[in-house]
Design a protein around this nucleic acid. Structure first.
Lengths: 194, 194
DNA sequence: GTCTATATCAAGATAGAC
DNA sequence: GTCTATCTTGATATAGAC
């Protein structure tokens, strides 16, 4: 049976499915090709090389994660809930996609030795998105003065949640722990600004 | 010039130096051999294969990290300072050894796809050490009842510090941020138990 | 235990037809 | 754009002498 998706989409799906769960270096191109049911030359025609495929898979995933996070923010009803929506958003997101062993952006960056790579830039985009939006969401909660510092703490906690998943903690447990810690950070920031 | 260290030690040094900064998969055995000034057969005689070398390099590093942490704990003068000594300990440690791009245990685990690998077990040893000792150190600060929960939060924060380093934040900045967040978690635990 | 030289193999990438 | 078949490379590991 042939899938109805384009070869390009099947390749992106397979790359996400395999490389982000098994590791990029540990996932040979052959295996991706087989799962996508696509011929080698097609991959290279679309993406140039393996790294090109991984980069585009990361970009697509960042877009989807962005959407999922926005959705979680929109479901929240207070500024404070919107600020911590990151964490339930992460949990929902991980339940909706093939869950990478942990964060694919950090994972790919950890494997890629050269800072200037397109792969590293994908991680930078992720970090940038997190920093910027967390800071925006923090302003209505603690005011513009303390927003940057609080955003940094929340990014640290979020990053810690991802790392705990790599340590083998279940996503739900790691998220609950991160949520609890985030509340402490927000309370402390409110006491300072108030 | 030939080093005075044994071939075995030169191999471990080179593996730590290269594989933990560039990534294991991205570091060919040849390169390790060249830097160690050792012949291929010697490596395989000592370690069996590349993974064996990496595993022993990790074990050695865990031992040294353990020592460094103990040292930081001993330099502290109050139970509370001992509980957070993890973070200045990390900073000193990273300044004393070839600093891996981030945590070599998490890094190696991230690359290794199979949960049962000897490599994954090295990460488990690290997590185990952190959990156990943090809990012991937390008892004199917040009492036995809340110690486990606080230890989990501090491990999350520590793991977040490591992840922030991978995101490109300087070690000192990440440590300072983690220290600040840890103090919040401890204060909150004290309020609950008091 | 250590060396030089080499076998073996897997993986990324391409050639050329359709 | 897509396929089958293949090329090329580079990396792990071993053979056999000292």
């Amino acid at each position: 049976m042939t899938s109805q998706l384009s070869a390009r989409d099947r390749l992106l799906d397979a790359a996400e499915d395999l490389a982000f769960t098994q590791g990029v270096a540990a996932t040979p191109v052959d295996v991706i090709l087989k799962q996508a049911n696509v011929a080698p030359a097609t991959l290279y025609a679309h993406f140039g090389n393996k790294e090109g495929l991984i980069v585009q898979a990361l970009q697509r995933r960042l877009g989807r994660w962005d959407e999922a996070w926005r959705l979680a923010i929109n479901k929240a009803s207070t500024p404070r809930e919107r600020l911590v929506a990151l964490l339930p958003g992460l949990q929902n997101y991980r339940e909706s996609v093939t869950p990478a062993r942990w964060c694919p952006f950090l994972g790919v960056a950890a494997e890629s030795p050269h800072p200037g790579d397109a792969l590293q830039e994908a991680l930078a985009s992720d970090t940038q998105l997190l920093s910027t939006r967390l800071r925006e969401l923090a302003i209505p909660v603690v005011g513009a003065t303390g927003a940057g510092a609080l955003a940094e703490e929340l990014l640290l906690i979020y990053t810690g949640v991802l790392g705990m998943i790599l340590r083998g903690v279940a996503t739900g447990d790691a998220v609950a722990l991160g949520l609890k810690t985030s509340q402490l950070a927000i309370d402390a920031a409110l006491n300072e600004s108030g």
